[in-house]
Design a protein around this nucleic acid. Sequence first.
DNA 1: GTGGGTGCAAATACTTTGCAACCGA
DNA 2: TCGGTTGCAAAGTATTTGCACCCAC
Lengths: 131, 131
Amino acid sequence: MAALKYSRQREAIKSYLCGREDHPTADMIYTSIRGDFPNISLGTVYRNLSLLVELGEIRKITTDGADRFDARITPHSHFICRNCGCVMDVMVPLNDPVPQVNQSWGHGEVEECRMEFYGICEQCKQSAKCS
Amino acid sequence: MAALKYSRQREAIKSYLCGREDHPTADMIYTSIRGDFPNISLGTVYRNLSLLVELGEIRKITTDGADRFDARITPHSHFICRNCGCVMDVMVPLNDPVPQVNQSWGHGEVEECRMEFYGICEQCKQSAKCS
DNA sequence: GTGGGTGCAAATACTTTGCAACCGA
DNA sequence: TCGGTTGCAAAGTATTTGCACCCAC
């Protein structure tokens, strides 16, 4: 169904996301997009983000606090700061790549796997030193 | 500070969690613990879970929907069902184990890494067949 | 007795949803 | 015109917090 119609808002959200290396929350996207669409609503941002995730055009990263969104859909890992919650791509070439997808261990068939690294980001570490 | 005093509620929460292989949400723990402590409040459950996480006695698993808690603190991975949200331990011995912790890639020092597998669990797959 | 812990309820944070108006095909 | 999309606001879900009372030490 859902014959998917063009929308400037959706386009703006996607291109905003594509132009970034970090992984903004819905609210950050909303705030920023308001520059071009002063009347856009947060609901619209959430609706379009969900839609894009469903379409496989972006990824949702669920962490502590608000969800974050990532326009890079090729497999990669994330570094997540325990202090400020920021998320950054990690392109570590693992010696032995993550086990292939589509295997089963009795729990169910694996469709995707993700590796996440936790720590305190440089920026937070710096500001901690000053205090 | 916080001279940590004994509490029957905290004890009950921890032992409940230790006796399980799955990874209940705060609300599931609350509902179940009410059998022994009819007056316990959800706030107390949340407070104690946070405390136990801080103490390193349990782990919090942030997923879509409600957070889940895990009394198994030795390193392991999780299978997360995209349909029902259940979380199960995966003890796959990866050929080449996850990169050692305590390395840095310019983002910050890694203190922990987690691997998560996503898919549809057997149980959900079964019920889907019937419909 | 003192300070940490508890129950309760209100508050917060994040996300979803109903609805009438709007706009792209 | 038709049906997907939007803005707005209200509702929903998950979690945190203020406060007076209670209990472990």
